[in-house]
Simulated scan of single mutants.
Amino acid sequence: MRFLVKISFPVETANAAIKKNGLAVIRQILEQQKPEAAYFIADGGQRTAVLIVDIAAASDIPALAEPWFLALNASIEAVPAMTPEDLEKAGPAIEQAVKTYG
């Protein structure tokens, strides 16, 4: 299942990591995790990565989160995300909900 994952780094921790080895730790984690897409933004005054990842099972979440927690003291939010094809497949369930509750 695809997830949109927002990873925010405390300013002090990110500054220290950048001074130590540039962006090597971020590059290393991304090479290991192979997200479908990765974007970097400023959010709430913190350096933030926004990733699209495919997570096969809930037990895969620690493998995704722990490198960011340990290397950059990051906070992480993960939200399930659908492709247009996924939304199309969900159509009958949405229609049924409308009939029942709408």
Rank of each mutant, 00 (worst) to 15 (best):
L87Y: 11
A97P: 00
V25R: 02
A65E: 15
A81F: 11
A63V: 02
Q96K: 14
I76V: 10
T100P: 03
N73R: 07
G91M: 12
K6L: 08
K89P: 03
A97T: 04
A24D: 14
V11N: 09
K6A: 08
V98C: 07
A57T: 08
T48Q: 01
A38C: 14
L70S: 12
I26P: 01
A78L: 15
K19N: 04
Q28Y: 09
A90V: 02
V98D: 11
Y101T: 09
G102L: 02
Q46Y: 05
A56C: 09
F9R: 11
F69Y: 15
A42N: 14
T83I: 00
E12W: 02
L72M: 10
K34G: 00
E66D: 15
L4Y: 03
L51W: 12
A97S: 10
N21R: 00
L70Q: 13
P67V: 05
E77N: 13
A97Q: 06
E88C: 08
F9T: 03
A42C: 09
K89D: 08
K20G: 07
P67L: 09
Q96T: 04
L4W: 05
E85A: 14
Q96M: 10
E85Q: 13
A81W: 12
Q33A: 06
A17C: 05
A65S: 14
V5Y: 04
V50E: 06
E31M: 14
I26C: 05
I52G: 00
W68S: 01
Y39K: 13
V79Y: 13
Y39F: 10
